Measured scan of single mutants.
Amino acid sequence: LKGVVVAGGVLAGAVAVASFFLRNKRR
């Protein structure tokens, strides 16, 4: 169960970083 929580956190972080980079590329 702990691994699932960690994986979810990593996935959420990756999505946040990806969206951040996409926003920067638009400018």
Rank of each mutant, 00 (worst) to 15 (best):
L1G: 06
L1R: 11
L1I: 06
L1C: 13
L1E: 01
L1K: 13
L1F: 12
L1S: 09
L1P: 06
L1D: 02
L1M: 04
L1W: 11
K2W: 11
K2G: 08
K2N: 09
K2H: 10
K2I: 07
K2M: 07
K2A: 07
G3Q: 09
G3F: 15
G3P: 10
G3D: 06
G3R: 11
V4Y: 08
V4A: 14
V4Q: 10
V4M: 03
V4K: 12
V4H: 06
V4G: 04
V4N: 07
V4L: 12
V4W: 13
V5F: 09
V5E: 02
V5Q: 06
V5D: 01
V6A: 12
V6L: 11
V6C: 09
V6G: 03
V6K: 12
V6S: 06
V6T: 10
V6R: 11
V6W: 13
V6I: 14
V6D: 05
A7L: 09
A7C: 11
A7N: 05
A7F: 10
A7T: 11
A7K: 15
A7E: 02
A7I: 12
A7M: 09
A7R: 12
G8N: 10
G8V: 07
G8L: 07
G8K: 01
G8H: 14
G8C: 11
G8Y: 12
G8E: 05
G8S: 12
G9N: 06
G9M: 09
G9T: 13
G9I: 06
G9H: 02
G9P: 05
G9K: 09
G9L: 08
V10W: 14
V10Q: 02
V10G: 03
V10A: 14
V10H: 01
V10L: 13
V10D: 00
V10S: 03
L11A: 02
L11F: 09
L11C: 07
L11D: 00
L11T: 03
L11I: 06
L11S: 01
L11W: 08
A12G: 08
A12V: 08
A12M: 13
A12I: 12
A12R: 07
A12Q: 05
A12E: 02
A12H: 04
A12C: 12
A12F: 15
G13K: 10
G13T: 07
G13Y: 02
G13D: 02
G13F: 13
G13R: 09
G13S: 06
G13N: 08
G13Q: 05
G13P: 01
G13A: 10
A14Y: 11
A14D: 00
A14H: 08
A14V: 11
A14I: 14
A14N: 01
A14S: 04
A14Q: 04
A14W: 10
A14P: 01
A14G: 04
A14R: 05
A14T: 08
V15W: 10
V15L: 12
V15D: 00
V15F: 15
V15P: 00
V15I: 15
V15G: 02
V15T: 04
V15N: 00
V15E: 00
V15S: 02
V15Y: 13
A16P: 00
A16T: 07
A16C: 08
A16S: 07
A16G: 05
A16W: 14
A16M: 04
A16R: 07
V17G: 01
V17I: 08
V17W: 09
V17F: 10
V17A: 12
V17L: 08
V17R: 04
V17Q: 01
V17Y: 08
V17N: 00
A18D: 00
A18Q: 01
A18G: 03
A18P: 00
A18I: 14
A18K: 02
A18R: 03
S19Q: 09
S19I: 09
S19G: 07
S19K: 15
S19D: 05
S19E: 08
S19N: 15
S19W: 14
S19P: 00
F20P: 00
F20V: 09
F20A: 07
F20Q: 04
F20K: 03
F20W: 04
F20T: 03
F20S: 03
F20Y: 04
F20H: 09
F20C: 07
F21A: 04
F21T: 02
F21P: 00
F21R: 04
F21Y: 06
F21H: 03
F21C: 05
F21D: 00
L22K: 03
L22M: 08
L22N: 02
L22H: 04
L22W: 04
L22V: 05
L22Q: 03
R23H: 04
R23A: 08
R23L: 10
R23T: 06
R23M: 03
R23N: 09
R23W: 09
R23K: 06
R23E: 02
R23V: 06
R23C: 09
N24G: 10
N24H: 15
N24W: 11
N24F: 07
N24Y: 09
N24A: 12
N24M: 08
N24P: 03
N24E: 04
N24C: 15
N24Q: 11
N24D: 04
K25G: 14
K25I: 12
K25E: 05
K25R: 12
K25N: 11
K25C: 12
K25S: 14
K25A: 11
K25Q: 15
K25P: 07
K25D: 10
K25M: 15
R26D: 07
R26Q: 13
R26S: 13
R26K: 13
R26M: 14
R26Y: 10
R26L: 10
R26I: 12
R26C: 15
R26F: 12
R27P: 11
R27N: 14
R27F: 00
R27W: 07
R27G: 14
R27H: 14
R27C: 15
R27Y: 14
R27Q: 15
